[in-house]
Simulated scan of single mutants.
Amino acid sequence: MSTGLDIFDRTVQESNLWLKAVMDRLETADRHRAYVSLRAVLHALRDRIGPESAAHLGAQLPMLLRGLYYEGWDPTNKPTKERHQEAFLARIAQELPRATESEVEQGALAVLDVLSKHVDRGAAVKIATMFPHDLRKFWPSFIQTAAKNRQEGTA
């Protein structure tokens, strides 16, 4: 279905590619599960990294996903400061009330993997460096390695 506006058609197509990638990573055909995971993880990420970094990341998202990303955001709130896996996953689970712990964790891994492959690598690495080591495990290994190298000054 075409909207008749190239920019709208393009954002729908790009957003569907992201959604399909999340579905593939979750090994599911359930588009709704992939969508709610994408939304919940993007919100947790946005709220964790602070307004300036959140705005830079949001600018790299397809227009449709950008709207989803900013939905309900209050940039005047201080960034959340989850430092441990349990707290970060609990934050994501707030938007996924029917998901099991395993599904929440799988969603975090899937979304951050897809995000890492669709946004500027430098931006993904910069965001990953904002995460404490206990939370970096949710990022794909190539981002974890680059973030570690960046902090050590070897990249």
Rank of each mutant, 00 (worst) to 15 (best):
M1V: 12
M1F: 13
S2R: 11
T3K: 10
D6H: 13
D6T: 14
D6M: 12
I7Y: 15
D9K: 04
R10E: 15
T11V: 01
E14W: 05
W18L: 10
L19C: 00
L19S: 04
K20F: 04
K20W: 06
V22Q: 07
M23K: 09
M23I: 02
D24Q: 12
R25G: 06
E27H: 12
A29L: 09
H32F: 10
H32V: 05
H32Y: 13
R33W: 05
R33Y: 08
A34M: 05
L38R: 03
R39T: 09
A40Y: 02
L42D: 03
L42I: 09
L42S: 00
A44C: 06
A44R: 01
L45C: 05
R46P: 06
D47C: 04
D47M: 02
R48P: 08
R48D: 13
I49N: 00
G50W: 00
S53T: 11
A54S: 11
A54N: 08
G58D: 13
G58V: 11
A59D: 15
L61M: 05
L65T: 07
R66G: 08
G67V: 07
G67F: 07
Y70M: 14
Y70P: 01
P75E: 05
T76E: 13
N77S: 14
P79I: 00
R83L: 12
H84W: 12
E86H: 11
A87K: 14
A93Y: 02
Q94M: 13
E95K: 12
E95M: 11
L96A: 07
R98C: 12
A99G: 03
A99V: 02
E101I: 09
E103K: 05
Q106A: 15
G107A: 11
A108Y: 03
A110R: 05
V111N: 07
V111E: 03
D113S: 14
V114A: 09
V114I: 13
S116A: 10
H118N: 15
D120H: 12
R121V: 14
R121C: 12
G122F: 09
A123H: 12
A123R: 11
A124V: 05
V125Q: 01
I127C: 04
A128H: 03
P132I: 03
K137D: 09
K137L: 13
K137M: 12
F138L: 09
W139R: 06
Q144P: 10
T145Q: 15
A147D: 03
N149H: 14
N149Q: 15
